[in-house]
Nucleic acid binder design. Structure first.
Lengths: 226, 226
DNA sequence: AAAAGGTTTAACCATTAGGTTAAGCCATGA
DNA sequence: TCATGGCTTAACCTAATGGTTAAACCTTTT
């Protein structure tokens, strides 16, 4: 594959991403994607045989490049304390999504409209590395974080939260504003750049919230924050 | 309008809702809606002149019947304390969405794909009752809650959160699990009814989190919970 | 029994969308 | 200079889709 081909492929995928994110798989029009990419329909089909293939390429790239690594920080990465996980996750998550604000809604919507096919596309289906030695969920790598929290609770350092609920809450606090972005922009009368700033501020705020929920003797503005 | 007409209209709207929620406006097929409703295309167009009109009817009903009243509990209802707002909001919100799990993603996706038109549809556009006497956002009814929190902070009862961030966090903790429902079901290996139970439990958990974030001397399992 | 109104049937139309084809353009590099 | 390969143009095909129409059917009401 030549350099030009790679370039064009990327141009097409970027255009396709934009259109798919706005209209979904069903609503997107190949012509619109071609226009957006500044090329013609013929070339579109020359690179990606058909709409479905193009869509899957885009979806896969998005999911594997962003969703998987990000959730990995919270759930899979080894050698991190709970506190480190939270801080790193929230920061990278919000920072990343600030650059790709439409990602979550796009991914969620398409998964919802066809869970099996979409989740099957992703890295052999092991989104959360569910497969343990015995096949039981307890073996899952994705439960490291859950274990660590349970440990902290048992040792009396943490409040007795339900670890799964806690994880979902953290992710929710980070993701939701992007999902509801148009409403929030409307409600708070914010433009794109103001929304961005708002989300930058949110990093510290969410970390604070998470710590306050979890940690028994938490005092904000300690050097937990950098 | 006769009784039969109302019935049929409702049957159609329920079918349409189902299809729209799964495929979005662009992806939905009129034939599929007719099939789902157990009627024919001709009758579909007899009741709702065209696809757009049908869609708007469904969207409007959803938004006005669920989203507006629910957000009202948190943001507009008068005569409630902050604590009462949070408890009532979280409970009704999760309970309602447990009965309509696809609502949030549907609403959010459609708003995102056409913010102006969609937000314009809703109760004359005043989703958050933004119009105050001077037109400044500060006059908005939707800021009552924000004021109340600010008051609590000033009086030293609450931690000094950013009220807007706090509101979004509460909503996010409630909404996100429904937005990410297929992923969560997959991750936690839950079926529909287990997910429902999980969300029932979540009510108390989220209320706990919210109070712990906000209230300085909060002790869980006090009679804040009923 | 006749009128009325909700509903079906089925044919039909116009448009659009996905996808194909083939001829030709144009820059690079052997 | 000519061949290669990325790319464009534009016509074309087919299937699907939104939407329409008119006649007939059936049940309830008068």
């Amino acid at each position: 594959m030549t350099q030009e081909e790679k370039q064009t492929e990327q141009i097409i995928m970027d255009a396709a991403r934009k259109v798919f994110q706005q209209s979904g798989l069903g609503g997107a029009r190949m012509q619109q994607i071609a226009d957006e990419a500044g090329i013609n329909k013929a070339l579109l089909h020359y690179y990606f045989r058909n709409k479905k293939k193009l869509f899957e390429a885009v979806f896969k790239e998005d999911f594997n490049r962003y969703m998987i690594p990000l959730s990995g920080i919270l759930l899979r990465e080894t050698g991190l304390t709970v506190e480190e996980r939270i801080v790193t996750f929230v920061q990278s998550f919000i920072r990343t999504l600030n650059q790709h604000p439409h990602l979550p809604l796009f991914v969620m919507h398409e998964i919802a409209s066809n869970p099996n096919r979409m989740l099957g596309l992703v890295k052999g289906g092991d989104v959360f590395s569910q497969v343990g030695e015995t096949g039981k969920p307890e073996d899952s790598e994705s439960k490291v974080f859950v274990w660590q929290i349970q440990e902290g609770i048992d040792e009396g350092r943490y409040h007795s939260v339900n670890p799964e609920q806690f994880v979902i809450s953290i992710i929710g606090m980070c993701v939701y504003p992007f999902v509801a972005r148009p409403i929030i922009k409307f409600w708070l009368k914010k433009e794109d750049d103001q929304f961005k700033d708002f989300m930058e501020d949110r990093q510290r705020e969410v970390i604070d919230y998470a710590f306050r929920i979890l940690i028994k003797d938490y005092q904000p503005y300690a050097d937990n924050h950098r």
